[in-house]
Amino acid sequence: MQERLKELQAEAIQKVEQSASLKELNDIRVAYLGKKGPITEVLRGMGKLSAEERPVMGALANEVREAIAVKIEAKQADLEEAAVQAKLASETIDVTLPGRPVKVGNHHPLTKIIEEIEDLFIGMGYEVAEGPEVEQDYYNFEALNLPKGHPARDMQDSFYITEEILLRTHTSPVQARTMEKHEGKGPIKIICPGKVYRRDNDDATHSHQFMQIEGLVVGENIRMSDLKGTLEVFAKKMFGEDREIRLRPSFFPFTEPSVEMDISCKMCGGHGCNVCKQTGWIEILGAGMVHPNVLEMAGYDSKKYNGFAFGMGPERIAMLKYGIDDIRHFYTNDVRFLKQFAVEE
């Protein structure tokens, strides 16, 4: 009997080891451990044994059962694991296939430039001021020291609607309006972005509509050196720390003294190339100390207050920064152009 049990154990374990599926394994479990299985059958014959032998044989029978059960469990875990692996293997995908596209648009390059400049000056304590695109001659010209008949009005031939109303030719009228609103008191620190209009035929370098961004600081102790320092901070942040700046005397009716700011050419490092017309410098903006007439007209005591102003063209800056060769691209809105400005720098 003892031998029979050992035999059964060896037989069952061999079958377990050979089984290849969970079903087969279950069949083995039922066959050997079930109520109708051979071990139960062996135990049924225990009646013939002596009282001493019975518990020994009973214990042995349980040992055999236990051993088979443990083996089955282990095998079952193996088979289950294999099944999981097989399933996973069958689920393999091509990870190089493209994902489900998420539609994302982006800023127009001019908005990108303008917001960059706005943020830069906001960080220096400026507010963003806006004003009407259709302006009175007074704010567009007269309040800026450009009386009627002034030859410099020719410099910016304008779109008039009536004799007194026109499309603004620069964003400077916003400065005049802001100063007027402050009723002769300081300080003012504003940046004015917006659309402006001039009578130009549209071509690669001219546009009848374009953007401008101007800045104005008015206070009791504003110096030319402050303008120079401010522009340097701007130029380095906007164009890179390695840029040099240079101020050149210039002329604008609304500032005195007036300057133009150049930055050193990035393309050639200042040695001269086609981009900088061999000068090593690239003109970026116009600036100056606010003309006393402009201050007085806006209600400021020019003996007490002074200020500086500067103005630049986002189109020009975008063209330089991104290497765009034709200003008309900004207004054609070809998506193949627009989508090139998606990356946040």
Partner: peptide
Amino acid sequence: EDLVEEVARLFGYDNIPMTLPVGSSTPGK
């Protein structure tokens, strides 16, 4: 101011120092 400009341009803008406005500060926003 015209005299200031004559002085500035012949003194040389390169020679003017770089500073930032001082005095009451404004919160930028």
